[in-house]
């Protein structure tokens, strides 16, 4: 039998373990009792508490994108197409990916560190010996909350990003708010909105899954907690790009049909 290199072996092991963790999630996610109260609390913490950061980055994203692209559009005599160009770019790709990366940093590392520290201080064991299923209470609720909240955060970031872009356009080109957004919506179709929204659920799921997996299976000690938080961000970010590529590929195939 051919022995695989150690690095590849551990990569495959990790992939298998994350897949097994995901299967465990699906097995428990639809089983009673449901932890609705904890789910709501997590939605508040993950959704509402990330809103300011997402809005701020979305706004800056809109400003920068418009400032960078405008001179080139002027050069090609296509400045009147700015709202359409920015609208499609933000809604289809930049909004979801940038927001998901920001959330992977904030939410993924937060979940990884929180669960990792609970594991190290035996809080997860304490929950288990009190007759509560910690996987259901801690993991299922967090993954659901991420899956449900990320699309909403992405919509907020898209909207504020477009508004940021409008501010530049109106300053430099004297465009009204109604005209700007009419042009944006004219350029967008369901074919742009649907795949973008659909993939944002997967992005949320990936961030929640990786953060919970890294925290729940973290090693002992403070070093283990730090590593859980760190690797949660790295792995989730990588997974987001893979998912994004797959989503674009699938959408492309669907368009062709």
């Amino acid at each position: 039998m051919i022995a695989l290199p150690k690095g590849l072996q551990s990569y495959l092991n990790e992939t298998g373990n994350i897949a097994a963790f995901a299967i465990r999630f699906f097995r428990q996610a639809f089983k009673k009792p449901f932890e609705f109260k904890e789910l709501l609390r997590q939605c508040y913490l993950i959704g509402y508490k990330s809103l300011f950061l997402v809005i701020a980055t979305g706004f800056i994203m809109g400003l920068v994108l418009t400032l960078q692209v405008r001179p080139t559009m002027i050069e090609f005599g296509a400045v009147s197409y700015m709202p359409q160009m920015v609208g499609i770019a933000i809604v289809r790709e930049i909004g979801p990916v940038v927001t998901a990366l920001i959330c992977a940093g904030k939410i993924g590392s937060g979940i990884g560190a929180e669960l990792g520290s609970m594991k190290v201080t035996e809080q997860i064991d304490a929950m288990e010996v009190s007759g509560t299923n910690p996987f259901k209470y801690l993991v299922v609720t967090r993954i659901w909350a991420c899956t449900l909240m990320l699309p909403l955060l992405i919509i907020a970031a898209d909207a504020i990003g477009l508004f940021g872009s409008f501010l530049i356009e109106t300053t430099k080109g004297n465009v009204s708010l109604t005209l700007y957004f009419n042009q944006v919506f004219d350029a967008l179709s369901f074919g742009d909105l649907l795949p973008a929204t659909f993939k944002s659920f997967f992005f949320g799921f990936a961030i929640g899954l990786v953060g919970c997996y890294k925290g729940y299976t973290s090693g002992k000690g403070t070093e283990g907690v730090g590593r859980a938080a760190n690797t949660a961000v790295v792995v989730a970010s990588l997974l987001l790009f893979v998912l994004d590529f797959l989503a674009v590929l699938v959408a492309d195939i669907i368009y062709e049909i």
């Binding site: 304490a126 009190s130 299923n133």
Partner: peptide, 28 residues
């Protein structure tokens, strides 16, 4: 889970849920 309610466990590091108040720790 049922038998675990008959067995109390005091952990070495106390293992209090640090995101909850004392009241919520006991409520849990």
């Amino acid at each position: 889970d049922a038998i675990r309610t008959e067995v109390g466990f005091l952990f070495q590091g106390s293992a209090l849920y640090d995101s909850m108040t004392v009241r919520e720790n006991l409520q849990f």
